[in-house]
């Protein structure tokens, strides 16, 4: 069984084919939402990292249904579509996945503030990492201002995303 890899209580089995696709589908939806052209001044630079939220949520609650290969493919696709250096988003999502997975046992069955603080630390590290990677790729020291604002916005919106994802998860998979 795939679940033996994780040394946490075994996850309830989900039999519905569509329900099994929920983590991948919602992460893809998050990637899609983050490239929608909303006409809000300054929004493009500060678009919250929706994909990061979905990846974090599913890595904690259903890592068995979020294959790393899907994260890789989604990350690559997102970079290809927006014209960013290919591989950066994939690298970010996979690093998040592997870090969260290794600390997963501290997060399952904990209160939301605890999960949220984990996300806060993770997002800030991810944003700094992104800033470092892009600075290296562009061979200049990029302004970090937008990066920090984007991180703060991402953290602020996470409760909403987490609520929606949790609701959908319970509705389609039962308690988990």
């Amino acid at each position: 069984m795939a679940l033996k890899v994780f040394d946490t209580p075994a996850l309830p089995r989900v039999n519905g084919g569509i329900a099994r696709l929920l983590p991948i589908a919602t992460t893809a939806l998050a990637a899609l939402i983050s490239i929608l052209p909303l006409k809000i001044p300054g929004y493009a630079a500060l678009t919250p990292a929706f994909t990061l939220m979905a990846a974090y949520h599913w890595t904690i609650y259903r890592p068995d249904l979020l294959p790393p290969l899907a994260l890789f493919a989604l990350g690559v696709a997102e970079d290809l579509v927006v014209g960013a250096p290919v591989g950066v988003t994939a690298l970010l999502l996979l690093l998040v996945y592997s870090v969260v997975l290794s600390y997963r046992r501290y997060f399952v069955n904990r209160t939301f503030p605890f999960v949220w603080s984990g996300f806060t630390i993770l997002t800030m590290s991810a944003m700094l990492g992104l800033w470092a990677v892009y600075s290296m790729l562009d061979l200049t020291l990029l302004s970090i201002r937008n990066t920090i604002f984007r991180g703060v916005l991402t953290i602020a919106i996470f409760p909403v995303a987490s609520f929606l994802l949790g609701r959908t998860q319970r509705a389609m998979m039962g308690a988990g």
Partner: peptide, 10 residues
């Protein structure tokens, strides 16, 4: 579509 994020403007 819009490039979401701080590093690309497309």
């Amino acid at each position: 579509a819009n490039s979401g994020g701080a590093y690309v403007r497309t």
